[in-house]
Design a binder for these strands. Structure first.
Length: 266
DNA sequence: AATGGGACCTGCGCGC
DNA sequence: TGCGCGCAGGTCCCAT
């Protein structure tokens, strides 16, 4: 479940660890994660190519290459990037010019690796909504105005706003004291402003603590992220609300686990 | 057009 | 102890 803070954490570590290095070999243990081009071509396109720049867009990582093409990596739910890696459970490993491995691990094989010409032309990128840090409160309010969708479902829609996933959507709504089932356009101006502020606060704090290690997420170094201890509602079904001592409830919204405090979040 | 649910996968934790 | 089942959730896809 890497979301914006987790992917950003990895991005920053990649900048220090692999930027400027060359890929000298590619070891493919499971070609399923290679979406384009086909395995042989994928390997050829990367061999002896340097990593010039690393970019994050929403939850997508982009390696701009010396060949003018780009390698894009989406971790989806259980993807990991590990450096230096040992190749033990990797789906694809990249041997770099420093002799070390950059491992792409992915237990559930939902992750996606691609080599593309101009990454800006990817459908996923073209349709991606703005990140919370790229807009202001007025813009956010305007975006919500016409939307009848449940606010939590809307926050998860990457075409609407990018970077937020299930965990931080739950946390931000709790902090803003907004019931996740509310139609987006039913929020008052004040509520929209508060929600926008809490989304940014939640994401910034999570970045500060290097992300949340629930399930499979670890940093590039393999160390866990430390934000889980600050979670207020996520995965706390039946436990006490830190605010009112009531019980945290779990419901399903958009067929996703949704945690909230029915008495605090109106 | 917007919404809801299933599919893609694996492995963990639970109940029997 | 061992087995089957539900569930985890990012994104796409299809049906309504």
């Amino acid at each position: 479940m890497p979301e914006l803070p987790e992917v950003e954490t990895i991005k920053r570590e990649l900048d220090k660890a692999v930027l400027g290095k060359k890929v000298v070999d590619i070891i493919v243990n499971n070609a399923k994660v290679i979406k384009e081009p086909k395995k042989e071509r994928f390997i050829k396109e990367l061999k002896n190519i340097a990593i010039k720049k690393i970019i994050r867009k929403g939850k997508l990582l982009i390696f701009e290459l010396s060949s003018r093409k780009s390698l894009t990596i989406h971790l989806k739910m259980t993807g990991q990037l590990i450096y230096p890696g040992d190749g033990a459970v990797s789906r694809v490993s990249f041997r770099l010019s420093d002799g070390k491995l950059l491992d792409f691990n992915d237990r559930r094989l939902f992750g996606e690796l691609r080599i593309v010409g101009d990454w800006r032309k990817l459908k996923f990128i073209k349709e991606l909504g703005p990140e919370p840090f790229d807009i202001n409160a007025d813009k956010f309010k305007e975006m919500l105005a016409q939307k009848k969708t449940k606010i939590k479902v809307l926050l998860l829609d990457q075409k609407f706003i990018s970077g937020i996933g299930n965990l931080y959507a739950n946390e931000a709504l709790f902090r803003a004291e907004i019931n996740p089932q509310r139609p987006a356009n039913s929020l008052s101006g004040k509520e929209k402003e508060l929600l926008f502020k809490e989304i940014k606060n939640t994401l910034s704090e999570a970045i500060k603590y290097n992300g949340s290690s629930v399930d499979q997420y670890v940093q590039l170094s393999g160390r866990p992220g430390n934000y889980v201890k600050y979670h207020k509602v996520y995965d706390r079904d039946g436990e006490k609300c830190f605010h009112c001592n009531g019980k945290i409830k779990r419901i399903s919204l958009g067929s996703r686990g949704t945690y909230f405090c029915p008495s605090c979040q109106k």
